[in-house]
Amino acid sequence: MVRPCFLVVDREFPGSISTRKLVLETAKFNVLTAYSGREALEMMRRFPAIDGVVMDGELHDLPAEQLTQELKKVEPKLPVIVICAPGFVDCPSADVLLESFQPAKLLETLRKLKPRESAEIEKHDEDISTEPLN
């Protein structure tokens, strides 16, 4: 089974780990994390086979629209999901704008991007949960 891999771009908060990363890993997706727009571009160049990007709409170093355009220069078909505050409209190049952080909605969006792989993960989890304990 090949698990989808997503790049999560989050603002860095000292002493914390990305909540978005934890949500995706709990759903058994592979996750790379970048804490700035510039780091996200470098990660994309180093790991071009990622399946999508989940990014904070309010990064400090690059506007969301600029980062989205730069990422799509590297991989034009790359799906970009921007997590933003209500009313945020500054990223028309994003494939999906999700207002505020709603883990269930984010996972639903990512599962729609990779339905076959998501179904395989769910089946694998179900198979494991029904195995007898020895």
Rank of each mutant, 00 (worst) to 15 (best):
I121P: 01
Q69E: 09
D95S: 13
I17Q: 15
E70V: 02
S118E: 11
S118T: 15
V53Y: 02
P92T: 08
R45L: 12
I81E: 10
V74G: 06
I81S: 10
Q69F: 06
P103R: 03
H124Y: 11
P86A: 08
I121L: 01
R3A: 09
G52Y: 06
N30P: 00
P63H: 07
V2S: 15
E65V: 06
R46L: 15
D56K: 04
S93G: 08
F6G: 01
R46C: 09
L62V: 13
E99A: 10
L32I: 13
L107H: 04
S36K: 01
L110C: 12
D10G: 07
L59H: 04
E42H: 10
P86G: 03
E12F: 12
F13I: 12
V82G: 11
S118G: 12
G87H: 07
R20W: 08
I50W: 01
L67E: 02
P4F: 02
Q69R: 12
P48I: 08
A27R: 01
V82D: 08
L22K: 05
P92I: 08
F47Q: 13
A119M: 12
M55Q: 09
N30S: 06
T68D: 10
P76H: 07
Q102H: 15
Q66K: 08
T19V: 12
E117A: 15
F47T: 14
D10M: 10
P14W: 04
I50D: 01
E108Y: 08
I17R: 14
T33N: 01
F101L: 10
F101I: 02
I121Y: 03
V96D: 02
I121Q: 00
D51I: 06
D95V: 06
S100E: 14
K73M: 10
R38M: 15
P86D: 09
F29L: 13
A119K: 07
P14S: 11
P48W: 09
R3Y: 05
G57S: 03
P103E: 04
L106H: 06
Q66T: 10
L106P: 04
P4V: 05
A40M: 00
L97V: 11
L32K: 06
A40W: 00
P14Q: 02
S93D: 07
F29T: 09
L7E: 00
A85V: 10
V82Q: 09
E12M: 07
G52N: 10
G57I: 05
E117T: 03
V54R: 03
L7I: 00
E122H: 07
R38K: 13
S100K: 08
A85Y: 09
P48R: 09
C84V: 14
R3P: 01
L22I: 02
G87T: 05
R116L: 14
V80W: 08
V2C: 05
P103W: 04
P76S: 11
R11V: 13
L24W: 03
A40P: 03
